[in-house]
Amino acid sequence: NKEKKVFISLVGSRGLGCSISSGPIQKPGIFISHVKPGSLSAEVGLEIGDQIVEVNGVDFSNLDHKEAVNVLKSSRSLTISIVAAAGRE
């Protein structure tokens, strides 16, 4: 599966507009579980089932849900590497 990078700058009070969840035991990782229509996440093409592999240089493969949320909230400017639809297989 091809990795792609998206860049998101949080402007004003707009949030990311997506929710994440941890994958099942047999498929660990952090996946996008919800994308709000019209949100920044939707605008850059994030979709439900995409796996987040890295954010701002932080490897997401071994993070738990709480740590992942903290990384996503730690910066107003995010570089997110995803594997599209990895969670839909």
Rank of each mutant, 00 (worst) to 15 (best):
E54V: 03
I80G: 04
L78Y: 07
E54W: 04
V35H: 00
E89K: 14
I20W: 02
R76G: 11
D59T: 08
L46K: 01
P28Y: 04
R76M: 08
N62W: 07
F60N: 02
S33T: 13
E89N: 12
H34G: 12
I48D: 10
E54I: 02
S21H: 11
K2H: 02
A84L: 06
C18S: 02
S13D: 14
S13F: 05
E3W: 06
S19P: 02
L78D: 04
S21R: 14
G38Q: 08
L72S: 15
S33A: 09
G49E: 03
S13W: 04
C18G: 00
A42K: 07
A85D: 10
I30T: 06
I82P: 04
K36E: 15
S41N: 00
S22G: 08
V35A: 00
I80M: 15
S33R: 07
T79M: 13
K2I: 12
G87H: 11
E54A: 12
I30W: 10
I20S: 02
D50V: 02
A86T: 14
S21L: 10
L46N: 05
G17R: 02
S13G: 15
A85S: 12
A85G: 15
E43D: 09
V35G: 00
G49D: 06
G49M: 02
I52S: 01
I8V: 07
L78V: 06
S21P: 01
I82K: 10
K36I: 12
K66S: 13
F60E: 01
S22M: 14
F60Y: 07
K27W: 06
R88P: 12
S39K: 01
I30S: 02
G38C: 07
K5G: 01
S21W: 06
K27R: 12
G17I: 02
P28W: 03
N62A: 09
N62E: 12
G45K: 02
G45L: 00
V44T: 06
N70D: 15
G12D: 07
G45I: 01
F7Q: 00
F31T: 03
E3L: 11
K2R: 08
S33V: 06
G29W: 00
K5N: 07
G23S: 08
I32N: 03
K2W: 05
N1I: 15
R14W: 05
V6R: 05
I82R: 07
G57D: 08
R88Q: 14
A84T: 10
K5H: 05
D59Y: 04
R76E: 13
G17D: 07
K66G: 13
L78G: 06
T79L: 10
S13Y: 06
V44E: 05
V55Y: 00
V44S: 14
L40N: 04
V83I: 14
S81L: 07
S33H: 07
I48C: 12
D64N: 13
V35Y: 01
F31G: 01
L78P: 04
K2C: 08
I52V: 07
G57V: 14
S22K: 11
S21N: 10
S61P: 08
A42F: 06
G87N: 15
D59L: 06
G87D: 15
S33L: 02
C18F: 11
I48A: 15
I25W: 09
G23A: 06
R76D: 14
S41R: 00
G38S: 07
V69A: 15
E43A: 09
P24K: 08
S61F: 08
L40H: 12
G15H: 10
N62C: 10
D59G: 07
E43M: 07
D50H: 03
S19M: 09
